[in-house]
Design a protein around this nucleic acid. Structure first.
Length: 153
DNA sequence: GCCAACGTTGGC
DNA sequence: GCCAACGTTGGC
């Protein structure tokens, strides 16, 4: 089983949305970056994902969700009325993928970015590097463990 | 709101 | 294929 980290703006879809409907599968759509998409295509059902809240008041890791459906064509790319519409995408050759995620755990507190930056286990993780914009990234077992360990403080 | 860092686009 | 211009991300 692999581990991942995904960024989200909690105003759009945050850990509380997952926690309030713990049985629901949420479609994770709208990813429009090739590197992030390629990582999504590697996700398998059962993989755990650290949810990271960005562009908000409390920036940091917020909880765990899990993959319940592997990558499939993101329907928004075909919808001309969607902000995620991509006219260069076709049904036979879709460019963008979505996955389904559901709730696993909400951390007792948001672990702030400033604290994540102090963890030596995360020194090589794209998340804490300056200027990083990658919204979906793999986590090594050690990185995942280090993030979970912060919740025990 | 500012702005640095980054990815993408498009002219050449 | 290069690279300047542009739009976006995302912390502060």
């Amino acid at each position: 089983m692999n581990h991942w980290l995904m960024k989200t703006e909690p105003d759009e879809l945050g850990i509380d949305d997952f926690a309030h409907e713990p049985q629901r599968d949420f479609m994770w759509d709208g990813v429009r970056n090739y590197q992030a998409r390629n990582f999504m295509r590697s996700m398998q059902p059962g993989d755990h994902v650290v949810l990271y809240h960005s562009s908000c008041k409390h920036i940091g890791t917020a909880g765990i969700v899990k993959v319940t459906r592997a990558a499939y064509a993101d329907p928004e790319q075909f919808n001309p009325d969607s902000a995620y519409y991509d006219p260069k995408s076709s049904a036979t050759e879709p460019r963008w993928d979505a996955v389904d995620l559901c709730f696993v755990d909400k951390f007792p507190r948001i672990i702030p970015l400033s604290e994540l930056k102090t963890l030596s286990a995360l020194a090589d993780c794209a998340l804490v590097r300056k200027g990083n914009r990658l919204s979906v990234m793999p986590l090594s077992a050690n990185e995942y463990k280090a993030i979970l360990a912060t919740t025990n403080r």
